[in-house]
Design a protein around this nucleic acid. Structure first.
Length: 423
DNA sequence: AGACATGATTGAAG
DNA sequence: CTTCAATCATGTCT
């Protein structure tokens, strides 16, 4: 024990020479009056630190306490912190990551958009339609939030724990507040990367859910009978030009209660009507014979209602007339006069004289069917020939397929009806 | 289970 | 943009 001072001195000398800034630092902190005595002090302390692990626990505790209370302790602590800081920085260098903020932001945005994060989405959706989807989404939402909370809590707990630990250790090790702060940052980064994983998998789950529930193709719903009837009524009563305008489509959609398309924002039921008419046209044209019966049924039905309307001498639709979409100005019948004449000359009926424009087209179509059905054409083929060519040209398309739904209806020439029916 | 019906999608054409 | 034609994918009937 009595040779320690000498040894310490040597140690101190080595230590000091290794760190040129050390003496300066200490001098700053102590006022630097008596040079040699100070050196001895420092050497003393350093030696004690070096040998602390060789001592018994109790002894070490006592020494530790003594060291903590030593007047040179703050200065030494600062120096060591400084040295460590420089070493650590040089090792770590500029490998600070480039922050995955962009990705995190995207995930956040998506979760927000999907209604997972952010306020609960209580849109005016018809809940019956996607209740299943919403239930699952709520489930995901709940899991997400619980997990997020859990992570947050764990992060906070861990951070506090580490901070306490470091603070405690800073009594014996050179740990500066700056370093603690850095450590906290590291922890936060780690946890946020875990959080990102959570967000990522949540996004994936939502995507899968979406594709399963909201992909209309997968979840195809047939229109109900009434909707099909309404659409068919329109189709067969506008057989010569079955291209409803946008307004007509919307109206039909409304009448048919076709509203399931909230998920593809921008358009509503009209799209389904368009699809329906597209399919109908193509399938009708492909196999007219197959639709013969159907056509007759609807033709007869519309004829009856049309007749009853005109019999009342009224322009308003009778309640039993479901084809109002084709009337009441849904279409601009600029050439209704021609058609009207055609019909007149066609069957010589006089009751139509009371009709003006609107209903003419549907009646033309309708009457054709009635005629074909009842006018002595018992032969189905003949009947087919009777009305199938109307509007369908030699190429197998309805006339003017480019802009059929614009402004005016049938560009059907004045002679077309005659030629069609001039058997 | 298989056939058929039917709403939706896709790509070309205009 | 719309429509057509082919096709897909699902619903429904047998």
């Amino acid at each position: 024990m009595d040779d320690q001072p000498r040894l310490m001195h040597a140690h101190a000398a080595v230590g000091m020479s290794g760190h040129p800034g050390l003496s300066q630092h200490i001098q700053d902190n102590t006022g630097a009056t008596d040079g040699d005595g100070r050196k001895q002090d420092i050497g003393d302390i350093l030696q004690q630190i070096m040998t602390i692990t060789d001592q018994s626990l109790d002894e070490a505790q006592a020494r530790k306490h003594a060291l903590n209370c030593h007047r040179m302790k703050p200065a030494l602590f600062n120096v060591l912190c400084d040295v460590k800081e420089k070493t650590v920085l040089s090792i770590r260098g500029a490998q600070e990551e480039e922050s995955p903020d962009a990705q995190l932001m995207r995930l956040d945005n998506m979760l927000l958009a999907e209604g997972v994060s952010g306020p609960e989405k209580g849109g005016p959706d018809n809940s019956a339609e996607h209740s299943d989807y919403r239930a699952k989404l709520t489930q995901i939402r709940q899991i997400y939030h619980t997990e997020l909370e859990k992570y947050e809590q764990a992060c906070n707990e861990f951070t506090t724990h580490v901070m306490n630990l470091l603070r405690e250790q800073s009594r014996t090790r050179p740990i500066s507040p700056k370093e603690i702060e850095r450590m906290v940052n590291i922890i936060h980064r780690k946890f946020s990367s875990i959080q990102m994983q959570l967000k990522q998998s949540t996004c994936e789950a939502v995507m899968i859910l979406r594709s399963r529930f909201l992909d209309a193709r997968r979840k195809r719903r047939n229109f109900n009978k009434q909707a099909t009837e309404i659409l068919n009524e329109y189709f067969y009563s506008h057989l010569s030009n079955p291209y409803p305008s946008e307004e007509a489509k919307e109206e039909l959609a409304k009448k048919c209660s076709i509203t399931m398309s909230q998920f593809s924002a921008g358009h509503c039921g009209g799209v389904h009507v368009s699809n329906w008419f597209g399919n109908k046209r193509i399938r009708y044209k492909k196999n007219i014979g197959k639709f013969q019966e159907e056509a007759n049924i609807y033709a007869a039905r519309t004829a009856v209602s049309a007749a009853s309307v005109s019999a009342h001498g009224s322009q308003t639709n009778s309640p039993s007339t479901p084809n109002s979409a084709g009337s009441a100005g849904s279409f601009n019948m600029s050439n209704s006069g021609d058609l009207f004449m055609s019909v007149q000359s066609l069957n010589g009926d006089s009751y139509q004289s009371s009709q003006v424009g609107a209903n003419v087209q549907s009646q033309v179509d309708t009457l054709r069917h009635v005629i074909s059905q009842t006018g002595g054409y018992s032969d189905g083929l003949a009947a087919n020939q009777m009305y199938s060519p109307q509007g369908i040209n030699a190429n197998g398309g309805w006339q003017d397929p480019t802009t059929p739904s614009s402004v005016t209806s049938p560009t059907e020439g004045p002679g077309s009806v005659h030629s069609d029916t001039s058997n």
